[in-house]
Design a protein around this nucleic acid. Structure first.
Lengths: 362, 362
DNA sequence: GCCGGTGCGGAAACCGTATCCCATTGTTTC
DNA sequence: GAAACAATGGGATACGGTTTCCGCACCGGC
């Protein structure tokens, strides 16, 4: 009734099968494969031969149970089809692969419930780090929620990394990789102002989204610096999508709002805005200038090519992974708190063809 | 010298810790958590209390070693930033999540070496299936390579799924989810022809890419059906990117090629072509019509909005996962070969604003 | 009051690998 | 030629769960 391993069994072969067939011990096979122990040439050949014959690969679960195993990073993303997120993911994935790490991707669809479920799932998987991507909603509950995640992961020997979000308050075990969001918006708005624009329609994004808040703040500061007040109704909030850009401009035109430029919260919103202007018979940039934010490939594929703010998304991904890897190498040194756990990358304006000085009005 | 589990240990807590603290046996805790065995209310409360206190989660590695564990699908993709691929990935991921499955993402960067490494890595992880995304290069070696992957995965209890590629020849244990690539190209080309275009610049993609081959074949069939021959030099091969579209059109114009429409291999190529035409002072669609392929969001964000072929990428992803899940449920029934393992989804032309009848020439 | 049945908790045997420790063999040295 | 030593292979154990098999206690029925 010998149950275990009937010949021709469909299941994958184990290290024991290899050992048996090669006439050596299990330990020897393990050593040949991991290569961190001296083995005779003869043994190596014998084992490798069988490994090839059986097309054997080690069981990753067993391996990580036994202590070894390849480190894994989990990337949690709102929507995998967002270009900006995809670039961060690419950065993380690339840097992970370079180190032989594995990367998992999960999408939350903006649902806190799923976010929680995913964080727990990743905790089960014993991932080295969980990378949370994208702007966050600035509700009161948010800080508490993230702090809980951070501590929970930390206790499990993992680590939370926030990318593209403001850092957590207090002494929370998390790393933040951020970009100079407000500074970029300031520069972008200044670019419009210095071109002579005074009446600018601003579409920063959702009012509760931290990203939108920063971009709006940057614009406000620039306007202040130029001594130009925001006209009434010149700011319209809404989601970061094409439709919002389209509708916001369409509505503004219908309402008779007077503006010579559009400061969009993202490139996609800018694309929608551009389309709406065209539909209304206005030319870009001759009649109305438009600028975006993010510098995703779309920006340079539109006609006219979009002047926008470059955000080093892919590099942020790489930096995030490096931070995790360093902390893992460095051991438990310098855990003095959340200082040094906040990295900020620069942004800059990319000038293309979507801005002109405003047309002379009579 | 009691090594194991010094109080306040940083590592994650085990099921044993929970059992000890709740004053019950390890087995009882397991039963409460997996819930597949009757437990008294009292026991459940006691255990759950401790689980919450300790913020305990089961170790996924240990669990899957012991037989349980959540199934995992691996998605292998050339470039995560490609919009089409991202949508397939979204479909797979969504359907996986719906079933409580986990999904891994790996990028190959078009490198066969990395592809092999990743397939093996996934085999180690014991994934339920490996989903390979995107068109394949039609080299001789390719069929052998994939067949080897398929058998290798099959032997390990896993399964290979090819999405957006032609099916493998012979009796190979793999599933293919495909779309009517050639049919879509035929319809698209017919659309141009019926609008009166006779001189069409065709940019199908890389000559060796199966996707490009199918699209070119579809176009050829349509031209034949209309009795229109391809003019000399009207087909230009190249990568599926913006730059290729731009340069192909630029070169063609410089070479004095005469054409009234561009049949681009993808929407991104179409965007590049459009830009090049504009740069040359030509209007779209008044002077030259353009059509794309894929129907990614970009298509409707360009000005004019692009007439293109809709490919149900996200649904393909869902279908791929369902196929894997079904096969897993169904057990080892009906393994009669590779029939029924090839699913083809339909495509259709989406008419927007980038096509007009050709201008009257003198 | 005794017995059989039922319900639930506990001990132990795995799952597949890495590694510690020890045994064996061959080699060098006095 | 014997002893000390280096090199290398093997056996046992641990990793953290799940699950099977048992046994105990409690219940009702006669």
């Amino acid at each position: 009734m010998s149950q275990r391993k009937a010949a021709g069994d469909a299941g994958r072969s184990t290290i024991r099968d290899v050992a048996e067939r090669a006439g050596v011990s299990v330990a020897s096979v393990s050593r040949v494969l991991s290569g961190n122990y001296p083995v005779s040439e003869e043994l190596r050949r014998r084992v490798m031969k069988v490994v090839q014959d059986l097309d054997y690969v080690t069981n990753a679960h067993a391996r990580s149970l036994a202590g070894g195993g390849t480190p894994t990073v989990a990337i949690l993303i709102n929507n995998i089809t967002g270009a900006a997120f995809a670039h961060v993911a690419k950065g993380v994935e690339g840097a992970a692969t370079l180190r032989g790490w594995l990367s998992l991707v999960g999408t939350t669809g903006d649902d806190p419930e799923r976010e929680l479920a995913l964080v727990n799932l990743m905790r089960q998987q014993g991932v080295a780090a969980v990378v949370l991507l994208g702007g966050a909603y600035d509700y009161d509950e948010y800080q508490l929620r993230m702090a809980r995640f951070a501590r929970s992961l930390d206790a499990a020997g993992s680590h939370l990394v926030l990318v593209g979000r403001p850092p957590l308050e207090g002494d929370v075990p998390a790393t933040t990789v951020d970009y100079d969001n407000e500074g970029g918006a300031y520069a972008m708005a200044s670019h419009l102002l210095s071109a002579g624009h005074r009446k600018v329609l601003v579409l920063p994004g959702h009012a509760e989204l931290t990203t939108a808040q920063g971009r709006l703040r940057g614009a406000e500061r620039a306007f202040e610096a130029y001594g130009v007040p925001f006209g009434p109704g010149m700011v319209r909030h809404g989601p970061y999508d094409y439709e919002h850009g389209y509708e916001a401009v369409q509505d503004s035109l219908r309402a008779g709002l007077d503006f010579t430029a559009v400061l969009a919260g993202t490139d996609v919103v800018a694309a929608g805005a551009m389309q709406a202007l065209r539909a209304a018979g206005l030319r870009v940039p001759e009649d109305v200038s438009i600028v975006g934010y993010d510098d995703i490939p779309l920006a340079s594929q539109l006609t006219p090519q979009l002047t926008t703010v470059h955000v080093p998304y892919e590099e942020m991904g790489r930096v995030a992974l490096r931070a995790v890897a360093d902390r893992r190498e460095g051991g438990s040194g310098r855990r003095k708190g959340s200082d040094g756990d906040h990295l900020v990358l620069g942004t800059h304006v990319v000038v293309r063809n979507s801005v002109r000085p405003p047309a002379q009005r009579t």
